[in-house]
Structure formats: structure tokens, C-alpha cells
Nucleic acid binder design. Structure first.
Lengths: 209, 209, 209, 209
DNA sequence: GCCTAACCGAGACGGTACGTCACGTCTTTTA
DNA sequence: TAAAAGACGTGACGTACCGTCTCGGTTAGGC
């Protein structure tokens, strides 16, 4: 379900000319195209999007209540599909998940969109929530499911807080990918993080105060 | 050094009427006031800021080149001071650092500013860089310094990558504080994270595949 | 013949469902209703008319090519019927004609419509012409016929320009009714005008320069 | 005094940059130019006027509250100057006044403007009134002054209603000029009207019923 | 009693203009 | 020269209509 239908459609049975899916697609593609061309998100006016998509402004407002709502759908469209998990072990699955996160941070399209669209949305709690429900939470659940499987086969303590554990893996990678985009996101980073978190940083010997 | 002086001041020796510091302060305070009143950052126009501060628009443009530059200075003014470290152990210092991060995520003023101003800035690399140099990096250095002390007194392996280690502690807390602001940021969270990362998540016994 | 049929009806023998007269009536009534409610003519959009009449926009465009054409029919529907002439004398007939003009200028419905619709139409020569052919000219002919009868029975010189004569009577009344609507249009005005024009304004004695 | 200053100017002493007279002139000239080019008044959008005058929309709205107010000033600018009266006799003065009316109805610029702008204004009573106070009434007073002089030197009965008398002369000419613009407005029309009204239409001999 | 063309309501569509607001620059007066 | 005020050209905002175009669903003839 997209947000595109958020505007009121008075009744049940379809009346009048139905909305064109082609138009919907053209709009989303138009936004993508502009973002890929390097247009800063701040310069993405509805007016310009409409011009690019060859569409009337009202046609956009008919579907979305404003820029933010539109952007939620753009994000969903830009979001790469869930990675395929090897299933060989929890550790390997986690590496694949983080690796997907790393790559997403590098991809031009998603990066341009995520890093900025994402930002804009925070100003509008309604949208932020929609994005979380539709995009973020499913991903988080995927991660927790991997951890749960790890608990079942003994790779992870059974009594650990899964949300916290998930954040321990995801947080460092996101921190790198989102706050230090210019920094290197080296190939082995996902493995490093997963293994470090699993092993812990404490030295074998106890500290000498 | 603030960014406030970014506009050209034609010559060396001060000529004509000097810029009023009071004016500068009034502008920054005006932005703060508006943010605390809950005005969404997106609605913070220069025009409105000038009106609130009882100042001409040109007076703002004379000091900053635009909204973003102004916001960098606002952020710096809003940033809480570095926390005081107990110095009893690396572990305790880390807990205090993360605890500061947690509290910052809860503070009304900083939260309103950070969560949003921060966002806006990503669209402007120049500003993003300025913010990092002036605000983020010093904090990161502080964390790395704590870790370095930990290495010296044996609380941390000597050959660990300090940047990565720092992210392992900071990432989870920031993830919580910035991406899930509605979620609880419970009191003990800082301790949980520090101890979990130090100890690792792997069970004592080896996994049964 | 109304203008309502101005749109092409492809062939000769009526095929398919015939146009509903009820719909036609509903549209005209809708416009009247809105005008009487005091809606300024400038705010009478086709969209609103359709809404008021409970009719699709296309149903209006099927009958009239635009707002102006519709308004011509509205005017015709609103136009009061030709007054009944007493026939006792040219002078009495003229008084009755002007009296009708005076009353029309006072009538709520017609006034609202005439004073404004009339105005709008000047911008569109096509419509202006249609209005003249269908509404104005017949009235003018009626006046000239009265004058012609006056010539025949000696109330009026035989060699006078009937168009000019007609304007001499009609002009002053229309000037009052249309350009100074707030001014009084007193009861005896028609008689005053007719008698003044018939008698002339020149004093009996010759002027002393 | 123009209407151009109808928007609020908070205080007495001029503060801030004063409004440019050149801009004001450019706007009025722009409208004239468009009208002379034959652009129908209905197509005279503020947007287009601004484009033509090389001016921002807001600059127009700063001076006038809307199209109608602007048009009042346009009309005043387009209005030809009062004709010079010979003063030889009331009759000659009246001929000159009507002649001016006739010529105004023929002039391209004024005609295009008057015939249509005038029309538009009727929809807005506020503007209609402003136009009357500023343009129509002065003209009417001029006519009445001529008639008054006629009364003083015996060309006109002393007890005649000057408003009515004025309408008797003006009405027929305006009727021709405004409602039948396609008809001829022949050279001698002014004289014909003045002399006919002064002499009256009634035949010398009494009617034979 | 079907068939089928045209009508009907609703409303989507690409546009244009509305009147407002903010941008960043400029031109005033006052200090 | 700075400062407050506010005009300036520009251009986006979200709304309302324009006139056209589908939709599903009636009506009428003519077969």
C-alpha cells in the first residue's frame, strides 16, 4: 500500500475517471531522475517535479498532501529489496544484512535520496512515523528474526534483549553510512562490526587500574 | 571563532560603525526562542527570524551567507558542554559520554535543534563539513581519547581500531536517540550498551549448528 | 431558438439518447439561483454551476461552448416579456416602454443579471452580437414601430430619423438605470423623459447672448 | 490622488525604501500596451501584466488590491483630458462635450479600455463607486456647469432639473457609443442630438388622433 | 426484446492564474 | 559605515477553474 491514495476518495464504488497508474509512476520516476541528476533536495519544488514528469500540479496534490508524503513513497520506491540471506549461520546472515546497509549507503540513487529525504521527514512526525512503519520497522524485524534464529541454534544468548542487540550491530554501520558519508566504507566493515560485537572488546586479561 | 564573520569586511582597520555584538546575540537567541516554541525548522524563514529579533534582514545577511551558516552557529550555541569525565576507568568514562548523548537526545532545546537542524544541513555539504569540524569531530576525539587511555591501562586491546571501537559505542546510542525518538531512552541504556559491547554477545558455549 | 444547441450533433436523424430538457432547465435555473443569492458574476464558474445544478461539467459544455454562450441564454430567460402597449397614443406607448425599462433596472433578478452579464459579454463580440440579435434589436424595433405609428398619426414629424429618435428616449433612461444604479429611479421618470424630449428644452423666448 | 496607495503604509514618516514611481508608471503603461495590442481584457492576468511590465507580482499587489483597483487607475490614465469649451453659447459647448464623448468612443486606446474595463468594474461596487467619484462625476459636473451657464444667459429654462437635462444630452450619445460600437458614429451626431433635444421632437401642428 | 449510439454523473487530466510568502538584493533615513 | 525598514524581481506555495477525457451506468430509438 502506498501513501498515494491518502487524499479523500468519497465513497466505496469507483466513480468518475479512475486515477492513472502511469501518471503515478511518472511522478515517482521524475523525482528519482532529478535526484540522480544531482538536484539538491531543497530545490525539488512540486512545480519542478510536475514539469519534469509532464504532469499538472493538481495531479500531484490529488495523491499526496505535500512534499513529505510524496517523499515517503519515493523512498519506498528507491529502497533496495531485502537482501537474500545465506542462512548458514546467524553470523553470516548478520554480515549480509550489514553489507546491504553498507552498499545502500554507497549507491548513488538511494544515497542521494536517503541521506536527504530522510532528513526532511524528521520535521514532520506524521511522515516520519509512516516511513518507520512502512520501511524501517520491516527491516528491523528482519534483523531481529535473524537474531532469534541465532538464539534458537545457540549462537546467541537466549536471554538477550533483541532490540538492543540489533542496535549494537546496526548502529555502528548506520553511523558510518549516514553521518560520515565521505569516509571510507571499506569492504570488510560489515564483518569487522559483526565479529567485534559478537566477541566483545574487552581484553582477555583483566584491567590494571 | 564563529561563522558570523563570513561576509567580507573590506579592509583591515575597522572603519565606520562597528557591528553590534548585541545584535548578533539577539539573532541567535531569536532562533532559539522560536525553536523552543515548537516552530518547525522548515518554517524558520530569515524574514521571521529578523522580525522576532527586531533586526533588519540585511543585518543577518551581513553576518551569515544564508540559513545554513546561521544554523551552524545556532547549533554550536545550543550544544551542551562536554561532560565531565570521572576518570575512574575507561568503562565509567564511556558510560558518562553515552549518558550525555542520551540526555542530549531528550533535551527539548537541543533535541529540537539537533534532530532537525542537523537534518537540513546534510543538503549543504559546505555546512555539513563546518558542523563536523566544529562540533562532531571534537566530540569524537574526546571519545577516542577515552579509549586510548583504556588501551594504556589495559582495559582495551592495544591493536584495536579506535574509530571503529568508538562507533561501536556511539552508534547504538545515536541510533536510538535520533531514529527512534519516541522510543524510551531508559536510564540504564548507556551502561547496557557499554557493557554489552565490552563483553560481546557470543555465548560462552560454542553454537550447535 | 436557444443557443443551447450550438454544439455539433453529428447527423440528421436523432440517434442515441436524446438530450434531457430537464437538465437544460436545471442549469439555467441554477445560474439564476446563484445570481439571486448575490454571487458575483465573476465568481460563477462552470464548475460551480455544474455543482449547483447537480450536473456534470461535460453536460454543460455539450450544450454551450462556454460561459458567455450560456449567459446569453440565461439573459434571454431572465428578460421580462415585452410590455403591453396601451395604443392610445405614441406618447403613452413610449411612457410604457420606458417604464418597463425603468422597472427592469430595479428588478432584483434581471438587474443582477443584466448589469453584470451584459458587462461580461462586451468582451466577447460573438456573444455581444448574439445578444443584440436576440434581445436588444427586437426591443429597438418595438420602439421604432411605436414611433412609426406616431409619425402616421401626426404625433411625430414624418422626416425624423427613427433610430436617433429612439435613442433620444431610450438613452437617458438607460443611462440612469445602468450607470447610476444607486440613484433613485423615481416613478415619474419615464413621463418626464418622454415629455421633455417631445417638447424640447429650449425656452420660449430666444436667448440673450 | 491615485488608488495606487490603497495598501497599508503603517505610519506617517516615510520608513524604508520608498516605492518607485517608475515602477508604477511601467505597470500602467504595460496594461495600456496590452490593451492596445488587442488583448481581450478577460485575458489580462496580473501575471501577464507583471511579465509585460518587467515587474514582480507582489509589486503590483503592494499598490492595488486586485485587478479592479488597478483598472480604475488605468482608466484614469487613459481618460482623455476635458475638452476645451468655446464658451460662445450653451449649445456650442454642449456640442463640444458630446463630440468629445463621440471621439472617445472611437479612440482605439480609450475605447478598448473603456468599453471593457468599464464593464468589469460593475461587478465590484467598491470600484464602480471609486470610478464614479474620480472620473464620471467630474465630467457630469462639467456638463451641468455648462447647462447652468445656459440658464443664466437664457438659453435654458431656469427651473429645469439639471441632472435630467444632462442625461437627455448624454444618454443618447453614450447609448450609441457604448452599446452599438459597430454602428456608425457619424460626424454630425453631436449636433443632431443637441439640436433635437433643445428643439424637441413634437411636430408644430398638434397631433390628429 | 435486443442493440447501440448518445447522454448522464463524476472526476482525473495538463494547464493557467490566483493571491501570499520568502528569497537575497537594493535603496532609503537615522544614528 | 551600520542599522531598521521595506521595496524590488523572482519563483514556489497550495487552491480553484479551465476545457478535455475517460469511467460506469442510463435511456431512448431502430431493428
Amino acid at each position: 500500500m502506498t501513501l498515494a491514495d491518502s487524499r479523500p476518495r468519497t465513497q466505496g464504488p469507483a466513480r468518475g475517471r479512475p486515477r492513472s497508474e502511469a501518471v503515478e509512476h511518472a511522478i515517482l520516476e521524475g523525482v528519482m531522475k532529478l535526484l540522480e541528476e544531482g538536484v539538491p533536495l531543497a530545490e525539488l519544488s512540486i512545480e519542478r517535479i510536475a514539469r519534469t514528469a509532464g504532469v499538472g500540479k493538481a495531479t500531484i496534490y490529488r495523491r499526496w498532501n505535500g512534499k513529505e508524503e510524496l517523499f515517503v513513497d519515493v523512498m519506498r520506491a528507491a529502497e533496495p529489496p531485502d537482501p537474500e540471506l545465506p542462512g548458514t549461520s546467524m553470523r553470516d546472515d548478520l554480515v549480509v544484512l550489514l553489507e546491504a546497509l553498507r552498499r545502500r549507503g554507497l549507491m548513488n540513487r538511494t544515497s542521494a535520496i536517503l541521506h536527504n529525504v530522510y532528513a526532511q521527514m524528521k520535521s514532520s512526525p506524521r511522515i516520519w512515523k509512516a516511513y518507520h512503519i512502512n520501511v524501517v520497522n520491516p527491516r528491523r524485524e528482519l534483523g531481529k528474526e535473524v537474531l532469534r534464529r541465532g538464539q534458537r541454534n545457540g549462537e546467541l544468548h537466549a536471554d538477550i534483549d533483541l532490540d538492543l542487540a540489533n542496535d549494537l550491530f546496526t548502529g555502528p554501520m548506520l553511523l558510518r553510512a549516514m553521518m560520515r558519508p565521505d569516509d571510507e566504507l571499506p569492504e570488510g566493515l560489515a564483518e569487522q562490526i559483526v565479529d567485534s560485537v559478537l566477541a566483545g572488546l574487552r581484553p582477555v586479561s583483566s584491567p590494571q587500574p
